[in-house]
Amino acid sequence: MWNFSRLAPAAAFGQTERKNKNMGYSQGLYEREVIIRFSDADSEANLYTASPVWIRKFDKLVAEHPENFREVKKETYQGKVIAKDYTFPKRFLSVRTKDIKRNLTDEQRKEISDQMKTMRAKRKTDSMP
């Protein structure tokens, strides 16, 4: 069993609670956790998160790939979503063993930069009413 009472308060590390405009209440950095669970017996993994960033990421995956990603549970507080549980195929999990560093030429960098500029401009015009 974990004993969290010995952890230093977030304020001791300069990490004060922040009000999340989407969640409607203050949540400390230690409370915005992401937990991934799986076992050898199952083919699916479970992800629990109280992190708004991960909630947005997985909501997008659920919308784009409902055959693989499912929202299982939603926790709310005063009508606002504060945490969610998701399931997805365990085969989608991977762990990197090192940082990948690309050695690009100036020409390759410019080509990638131009592609990103084009993509951002297209996204901007697509989102306009």
Rank of each mutant, 00 (worst) to 15 (best):
D126H: 04
I55Q: 00
Q27I: 08
Y86S: 00
S113C: 01
E75H: 14
N3F: 04
S94Q: 12
R32H: 05
A121C: 06
A121S: 10
Q27W: 07
A41Y: 01
P52Q: 13
P66D: 10
K90M: 05
D40K: 03
S127M: 09
F13I: 09
R32K: 06
S113I: 06
E71V: 00
D40M: 05
E67Y: 11
K21N: 15
I55G: 00
H65G: 06
R109I: 15
Y25D: 06
A83T: 08
S51Y: 04
K98C: 10
K74F: 04
M116T: 14
D59M: 03
N22K: 10
F58Q: 00
N68R: 13
K21W: 12
D85H: 14
G14E: 02
D42M: 05
L7D: 14
G24R: 11
E17C: 09
R102C: 12
T118Y: 08
A11F: 15
Q115A: 15
P52A: 07
S43L: 14
L61D: 01
P9V: 06
A8I: 04
L29Q: 12
L104E: 13
R123F: 05
S113M: 01
A83N: 11
R70P: 01
A63H: 07
K101C: 04
A50Q: 05
V53T: 08
K101G: 04
F88N: 06
W2E: 14
F92L: 03
E44A: 09
E75M: 13
F4L: 09
F13E: 11
M1K: 03
L104H: 04
R70T: 00
T97I: 09
R120M: 14
D59S: 01
N46Y: 15
T49M: 07
V34H: 01
Y30A: 02
Y86A: 00
M128I: 10
A41N: 02
R6V: 09
E67I: 08
F69N: 06
V62M: 00
K110Y: 07
K110C: 06
L47A: 02
